[in-house]
Amino acid sequence: MTTILDVERIEKSFGGVRAVQGVSFSIEAGEMLALIGPNGAGKSTCFNMLNGQLRPDAGRVRLLGQDITGLAPRRVWRLGVGRTFQITATFGSMTVRENVQVALLSHAHRLLRFWRPAPEHFADEADALLARVGMAEQAERACGVLAYGDLKRVELAIALANAPRLLLMDEPTAGMAPRERVALMALTRDIAREQGIAVLFTEHDMDVVFAQADRIIVLDRGRLIAEGSPAAVRANPEVQAVYLGAGLVHG
């Protein structure tokens, strides 16, 4: 298998708080890797060092062998890293198709010719992405009127617009109904395997994590305390202690 992301002993401190302490892991093509931990574990800090929002104090981040440590988010995105966010970020007054077209235009880095209206650019490509995420029939609707679960699917299509090799998903099912959560992550898993995309996601819904992740890494107070298959992580005594009463250790 091809290693898409290789993270080597990254660290980040804020004043006297060591938010991330020497964390290392890797992700293979087509793999779904869940990053979990209690509040304050360092998940968001770790996540933000991978796409350039934060620069590590130490360590290295490599994408397909290329050192991307500390590169700006836009440069990281252009190298093939897509991202979704806990709170959806779409243009509410624009149609579903237009939102995806904007992402495709940005990826192509194309300057629009004044005699050609923007909605004509990449319409077919946008429709193909929307079909893949089950949103083709709503292409003409404004994003501002969509149900939240549908917005999450549009956001996934936008994240796929730059043909990513790595997809970072921050709390992708937050605010969704249980059935929608399962459907979105199953769709993501299918796309990842079809296209060889490595997916790293954070998630508080342990049912989603154990059902969809191929592997799980667990952070606690900035340290990586466990890594392995869902079954191995569930049986880990230290993980059980960290999550006792939080629903991780049930059968």
Results as ranks from 00 to 15, higher is better:
residue 158 I to V: 14
residue 195 Q to H: 13
residue 34 A to Y: 14
residue 87 I to S: 07
residue 238 E to I: 00
residue 184 L to Q: 08
residue 217 I to C: 12
residue 34 A to W: 09
residue 246 A to D: 13
residue 47 F to D: 00
residue 114 F to G: 09
residue 238 E to H: 05
residue 45 T to M: 05
residue 147 A to E: 14
residue 51 N to E: 02
residue 112 L to I: 10
residue 138 Q to G: 03
residue 109 H to M: 01
residue 247 G to M: 10
residue 150 D to R: 07
residue 92 G to H: 13
residue 177 A to M: 13
residue 54 L to T: 03
residue 65 G to W: 00
residue 39 N to F: 05
residue 4 I to E: 05
residue 24 S to W: 09
residue 42 G to V: 08
residue 199 V to W: 06
residue 206 M to E: 10
residue 97 R to E: 10
residue 211 A to H: 06
residue 234 R to T: 03
residue 116 R to V: 14
residue 80 G to L: 02
residue 210 F to D: 06
residue 28 E to P: 01
residue 204 H to A: 08
residue 147 A to N: 06
residue 52 G to M: 11
residue 113 R to K: 15
residue 48 N to P: 01
residue 108 A to D: 06
residue 132 R to P: 09
residue 187 L to G: 05
residue 148 Y to M: 11
residue 208 V to T: 01
residue 47 F to S: 01
residue 25 F to L: 04
residue 237 P to E: 07
residue 28 E to L: 00
residue 81 V to D: 09
residue 225 I to R: 11
residue 47 F to P: 03
residue 102 V to L: 14
residue 95 T to S: 10
residue 137 E to P: 04
residue 55 R to F: 12
residue 115 W to F: 15
residue 136 A to P: 01
residue 51 N to P: 08
residue 25 F to W: 03
residue 61 V to T: 07
residue 239 V to T: 11
residue 89 A to Q: 09
residue 216 I to V: 11
residue 246 A to F: 15
residue 57 D to K: 04
residue 132 R to H: 11
residue 95 T to V: 02
residue 21 Q to C: 13
residue 96 V to M: 10
residue 141 R to H: 05
residue 130 L to G: 12
residue 121 H to V: 04
residue 87 I to C: 06
residue 80 G to Q: 02
residue 166 L to N: 04
residue 37 G to I: 03
residue 147 A to F: 04
residue 214 D to R: 03
residue 230 P to F: 11
residue 224 L to V: 04
residue 130 L to Y: 12
residue 8 E to M: 11
residue 143 C to I: 03
residue 237 P to I: 02
residue 22 G to R: 13
residue 159 A to D: 01
residue 25 F to Q: 03
residue 251 G to L: 02
residue 175 G to P: 07
residue 179 R to G: 09
residue 74 R to Y: 09
residue 82 G to V: 00
residue 248 L to T: 05
residue 100 V to A: 10
residue 141 R to M: 06
residue 24 S to C: 07
residue 55 R to T: 15
residue 194 E to F: 14
residue 142 A to P: 07
residue 145 V to L: 00
residue 90 T to Y: 01
residue 44 S to P: 15
residue 20 V to D: 06
residue 178 P to E: 15
residue 15 G to K: 08
residue 218 V to H: 13
residue 139 A to C: 03
residue 145 V to R: 00
residue 89 A to K: 14
residue 153 R to Q: 12
residue 121 H to K: 05
residue 84 T to D: 00
residue 179 R to S: 15
residue 245 G to Q: 10
residue 177 A to F: 08
residue 241 A to L: 13
residue 157 A to M: 15
residue 145 V to E: 09
residue 139 A to F: 02
residue 133 V to Q: 11
residue 105 L to T: 02
residue 153 R to H: 07
residue 82 G to S: 06
residue 32 M to T: 05
residue 203 E to W: 14
residue 204 H to G: 11
residue 95 T to Q: 02
residue 176 M to R: 12
residue 207 D to K: 15
residue 44 S to R: 11
residue 36 I to P: 07
residue 100 V to W: 04
residue 134 G to M: 12
residue 23 V to M: 09
residue 166 L to T: 02
residue 109 H to I: 00
residue 124 D to K: 14
residue 248 L to R: 04
residue 3 T to M: 10
residue 206 M to S: 12
residue 125 E to M: 09
residue 111 L to Y: 12
residue 235 A to E: 13
residue 241 A to F: 06
residue 206 M to A: 06
residue 160 L to G: 09
residue 129 L to S: 06
residue 68 I to N: 07
residue 205 D to I: 14
residue 199 V to L: 05
residue 74 R to D: 08
residue 183 A to G: 00
residue 141 R to L: 10
residue 199 V to H: 03
residue 84 T to M: 08
residue 187 L to E: 00
residue 233 V to D: 07
